[in-house]
């Protein structure tokens, strides 16, 4: 073994996003014939989310992962990839997120130049849905409601587009804030809602699917360039393998975990139960057009063009 590389992230090791880092470490060991060891530090042990992105940029750690919005703090255009209702389906998202897609190649060049990190792979992380303590079927049902939002502009635009007032709540306080009514609801992928036991404090799950997220794995550019050709190939192979495996794991779980939330007593409201997804889509798109069309319009076109 000739090389040890550090991978720091903010997820719990038991979650899929956390587990995929361990899968990546195993895959790199396998494909490199145990030449490269990847040491994983989960649960924000090495720093907060934004700090980890900066640490990868500066080379303190070799790898980290983040949402596209989080990578946006290093290179602004990345935030566009978290735009609500942007992808037709998971397959479309995975094609856009492929490091060889024209969109990703262009973004990656910009990211390397701006922040000295490159995207090595990205996997599907789930569709974000709304939870609340009452049934919500149209944007009008959310009028005057306060919903916890991730403090990034595009996430706030999403919550506003859904019809609610976005409120920042520290992640550690979300379950309590929901239980006591500081906010009426929140939005997250199914696996997060299940893992954090939000079913204990929220009665309704609305399958708004207002945002499809990818978890983007980045690598420090100097660490990448220091690799031999064989080592680079091993990382590429591992990236391909884990990208598929993690995406599949999340997709398989989405159905199962929705069912589990139902069993835990949540009322699930989808189109069949009268959820007007088109109304949400139209209302969210209106806010997005107003705020982001100037900045990301060209990028949106390129993403649409990917078949």
């Amino acid at each position: 073994q000739s090389l040890t590389l550090r991978y720091g992230h903010n997820n719990e090791p038991a979650s899929v996003a956390g587990a995929q880092a361990d899968w990546f470490a195993e895959a790199v060991a396998k494909h490199s014939g145990n030449d490269i060891a990847v040491q994983v530090f989960p649960s924000s042990q090495l720093g907060k989310l934004q700090e980890l992105a900066e640490a990868a940029s500066l080379g303190t750690i070799a790898f980290s992962h983040n949402t596209a919005g989080g990578i946006g703090s290093l290179y602004e255009p990345f935030a566009a990839l978290d735009t609500p209702y942007l992808y037709r389906d998971v397959d479309h998202l995975m094609k856009v997120m492929d490091v060889n897609s024209p969109v990703m190649q262009e973004l990656n060049e910009g990211l390397i130049a701006a922040a000295n990190v490159r995207v090595i792979y990205a996997h599907y992380f789930g569709r974000r849905h709304l939870t609340c303590n009452k049934a919500i079927k149209t944007p009008a049902d959310l009028a005057g409601e306060k919903i916890r939002a991730v403090p990034f502009p595009i996430y706030q635009a999403a919550v506003q587009g859904l019809g609610a007032a976005p409120v920042p709540v520290d992640w550690s306080e979300v379950p309590t804030a929901l239980a006591t009514g500081v906010v009426a609801g929140q939005e997250n992928p199914i696996n997060v809602i299940l893992n954090v036991k939000l079913y204990e404090v929220q009665s309704h799950l609305m399958l708004t699917g207002h945002m499809s997220n990818a978890e983007v794995v980045i690598m420090n550019e100097d660490a990448w360039q220091a690799l031999s050709d064989e080592q680079k190939e091993a990382v590429r192979q591992a990236a391909l393998e884990v990208r598929e495996r993690a995406t599949k794991a999340i997709q398989d779980n989405e159905e199962k975990e929705t069912e589990e939330l139902r069993k835990k007593g949540m009322t699930v409201i989808g189109p069949a139960e009268g959820l007007d997804v088109d109304a949400f889509r139209a209302s969210v798109n209106k806010v997005i057009q107003e705020r982001f069309a100037d900045k990301y319009g060209a990028l949106y076109e390129k993403i649409k063009a990917i078949a």
Binding site: Q50, E54, S57, L58, G69, G72, S73, L74, A115, N116, P151, F152, P153
Partner: peptide
């Protein structure tokens, strides 16, 4: 060492 390279990264909101 840090600000020499990271001075331009910005807070999210």
């Amino acid at each position: 060492a840090f600000l020499g390279r990271a001075w331009k990264f910005a807070t999210p909101t």
